[in-house]
Design a protein around this nucleic acid. Structure first.
Lengths: 342, 342
DNA sequence: TTGTAAGCGTTATCAT
DNA sequence: ATGATAACGCTTACAA
């Protein structure tokens, strides 16, 4: 279990530790054959540089902190996988923490990571605004932070976001074009920026098409299937069902659809549905769920690249990158059933 | 951005670094008031111990490596969350890596983690047996490793597993009791131990109830919804549909159900379904899916505790803990629809 | 109870 | 092109 150290290698080869070090860090001048022989012997001896010592001596951790709001619904799992892969390939380790949609937990996570000297942070914030000022302060101090998704567009910070307003507008307009006359929006949390942006897009479509006020409604829910179910339960009780729903995400849509189906409603004949932030499940429910797909891979990777460039140069110009997605129309939101099966 | 170090604190207070160190590590004798005053001043100065230096000097990383086969299907996300929380509370950091159900990737992950000097590993292996000998070798060298779930019961190693044979037997027997006469098992990968254990349980039930050979069948699939769909496609083509399926996991079941529904079959009237390793989606599909629920939280936590005790004492007796679960009967597998809605 | 100093395994700055 | 050695920030004998 005792580790072979650089000294062992040096002693064994009758060279100095610095030479061995050079062999392992291409940047120094070192004769090619010595380098090769050192690497060869080192390998045989089972030596590899102790990353902790390296970190200490270089005063950096080569760790990246990634904080996501949750990890159960597919979307942020994918983000995590992409970031993991990206940073490993760049020689960094990823410390992944999830906040369970709780802002106190999130602040704890961030502080834990900072105390553990991560070289930079990617934060996909949860609901609420309490922590924003702390993050921005750190950001402005020069601590490399890139925000992903859940952040207000107007905030002065490096961030990668999705054009929620635009795509929520498109999604809503699709329902209008399909001649649905009464459309409700299950909106997530109003103080969650992605929710409020999606609400904006929804309203914009309503206004453009001169929907009378009594024919649309915005209903605040959470982000979970359960909360979609609860919203429907209320509406059924109040006998206030529309003929279409646009939902803040797939899980809420799926919960809502389930509750309606359990109560004998047909989808989309009685009530149509559109989701958002497409997850794998969209294609597995019956009927398949129309949803806005985000370029998760590209967005996550971009955030990684931005973080790396901020680590290199903490005073680099702050940058906001806004991504667009695609709207996948499926059976849950069309009048006839002419959509071919996938 | 410059960090306050232990020296700064010592100098500022006119004490030695060791005294400051003592103040931060309760174990030494130190006068109570000096300790308090040091902690107070240190806090004011914004000092906290550099974990990297600590790791180097103590020759341990306080990092735990967790390797899971995938992170998209809910089950291992939950495992990851539980372990994360558990180890943080014990002063460890968790490095989470996922293998994407690829054994080469898995080996890379494990080696990366070992090279990064994790104090211990929790491994939930993926399909295949190639890496087992490497892990066992490490395990026997005294490297603290605990295996979770995907490991052969007979392997001599610390492990936490689920009684797959028993619960797959129960699940199958339930279908028999419901008077299904032709039951197929969508089995996952045959060289994945959880699959082969579930196959065993399935066969056991078949034998006990004297099912004629032509009335049951084991069909190898993967672990994804897509693979459940493919299996059904084949069976429809061959006009070889049973009246019930027992599936290796929920995703395969859901994919299979989806494909059948798309082809006009009613579930459970035409074909019944039972899943395994219950995930949240089981209750969201129509009809709700019967499934075997595993005590994910307890199993993950137990594996964490076992790892910690092996880290403390690498030569402790190796231990195997086998968990039991519960079988949740829902509409997908009952003859009448008398099951109350949840 | 406190201080001194060696050591953890590297990298990096000097010399040579 | 290579070697000697100080740093990195902490813990921990050992001394006082």
């Amino acid at each position: 279990m005792k580790h072979v150290t650089i000294k062992d290698v040096a002693r064994c080869l009758n060279v100095s530790v610095s030479t061995v070090s050079r062999a392992f860090n291409d940047k120094y001048d070192i004769r090619k054959d010595t380098k090769e022989m050192i690497l060869k012997t080192a390998h045989e001896m089972g030596y590899y540089p102790n990353p902790i010592a390296k970190k200490l001596s270089q005063n950096r951790s080569l760790n990246i902190g990634v904080v996501v709001p949750e990890i159960m619904n597919g979307y942020y799992s994918e983000v995590a996988i992409v970031l993991q892969e990206f940073f490993i390939s760049k020689g960094y380790q990823v410390l992944l923490m999830q906040s369970d949609e709780n802002e106190d937990q999130e602040l704890k996570n961030v502080k834990t990571l900072i105390n553990n000297m991560v070289d930079g942070l990617i934060i996909a914030p949860t609901i609420g605004y309490k922590n924003a000022s702390y993050y921005i302060e750190k950001h402005n101090e020069g601590y490399p932070i890139v925000f992903l998704n859940r952040i207000d567009e107007t905030l002065q910070a490096s961030k990668v976001i999705f054009n929620n307003v635009k795509w929520s507008f498109f999604a809503t307009e699709h329902l209008i074009r399909e001649k649905y006359k009464k459309i409700y929006h299950l909106s997530g949390y109003k103080n969650l920026c992605v929710s409020s942006e999606r609400i904006q897009g929804f309203k914009k479509a309503m206004n453009k098409h001169n929907f009378p006020k009594e024919n649309y409604k915005i209903i605040e829910t959470g982000l979970l299937a359960k909360e979609g179910m609860d919203a429907i339960e209320d509406l059924i009780f109040q006998q206030d069902l529309p003929d279409a729903f646009f939902c803040v995400n797939d899980m809420v849509a799926i919960g809502a659809m389930k509750k309606l189906k359990d109560n004998g409603y047909k989808i989309p004949e009685d009530v149509a549905f559109v989701g958002f932030t497409e997850t794998r499940i969209a294609k597995l429910v019956t009927p398949e769920l129309s949803s806005v797909k985000q370029p998760t891979y590209d967005m996550a990777k971009k955030s990684g690249e931005m973080l790396l460039s901020r680590i290199k140069n903490p005073n680099s110009e702050i940058e906001t990158v806004i991504f667009n997605g695609e709207f996948n129309i499926r059976k849950s939101s069309v009048r006839d059933s002419s959509i071919p099966a996938t």
